[in-house]
């Protein structure tokens, strides 16, 4: 237990360093998630809108989950060398699957009756997408983004084996910071991930249309819900 007390002391004594590393950690996270969104959202939403490519859209998250983060980052070192770029590319690869799968499941699962009603009113496909499907799909899409953010915050820690990137720098450098430093930084990373989780959960709630709030959001077909419960975690 002493180690934990020392770890908390370390946080107090090194707040400047921890703050600096937290910012670097968030910069890396933001860059990786931002790029992942640019790639994954259009593809996922478009496939969901077309009701096509369910196999790809669903299995990409299974494969993505299977990719060992440590191997991905290490491999990036062998190809791209150490540093920000390598870490960021590895993190983008890891952030794309949950965003893409959720966007797909969210749009694909929008109630067909609502879509047909909109079409009956004479909306073009683009209008259906923008005015009906996206608003209804938003909470679930957002859940995917939340998962990606939390996942990337966690994985950015491991990226420290491949050059300075954030709070993981302390965790992999027990030699310099000793166990209290490692414990202190671990506590900080855990708190950071939990805060992100909480913040995004609140945001998600705020953007969920009132009518959808009471019942738990669940995509159309039960099979896909079962295959991707990660969307509701």
């Amino acid at each position: 237990m002493n180690d934990f007390v020392d770890g908390i002391k370390f946080i107090g004594d090194n707040s400047g360093l921890l703050w600096h590393l937290t910012i670097k950690h968030l910069e890396l996270t933001g860059a990786a998630v931002g790029i992942a969104l640019l790639i994954a959202l259009p593809i996922g939403i478009w496939l969901g809108h077309l009701h096509r490519g369910s196999f790809v859209a669903i299995s990409i998250s299974n494969v993505g989950r299977a990719l060992p983060t440590l191997a991905l980052i290490s491999f990036g070192v062998a190809i791209l060398g150490i540093g920000f770029l390598n870490s960021m590319i590895a993190l983008v690869i890891l952030a794309v699957p949950p965003v893409l799968t959720n966007a797909y499941v969210a749009v694909e699962g929008v109630d067909r009756d609502a879509v047909e009603a909109a079409e009956g009113m004479g909306m073009t496909p683009l209008e259906v997408l923008l005015r009906v499907e996206l608003p209804l799909a938003l909470p679930l899409i957002f859940a995917g983004i939340r998962i990606a953010v939390v996942f990337v915050i966690a994985t950015a820690t491991i990226a420290s084996v491949a050059g300075g990137t954030g709070l993981g720098d302390i965790i992999v450098d027990q030699a310099t910071y000793r166990l209290p430093g490692v414990i202190g930084a671990s506590i900080c990373v855990a708190v950071l991930a939990l805060l992100a989780q909480l913040l995004f959960a609140l945001l998600q709630r705020a953007i969920t249309p009132r009518g959808l709030r009471v019942q738990k959001v669940r995509p159309g077909r039960p099979e896909s819900a079962a295959a991707v419960p990660v969307i509701t975690n």
Binding site: I82, V161, G163, G164, D173
Partner: peptide
Amino acid sequence: FSPLTIGL
């Protein structure tokens, strides 16, 4: 200073 895993 760049901290590097030994070997890199």
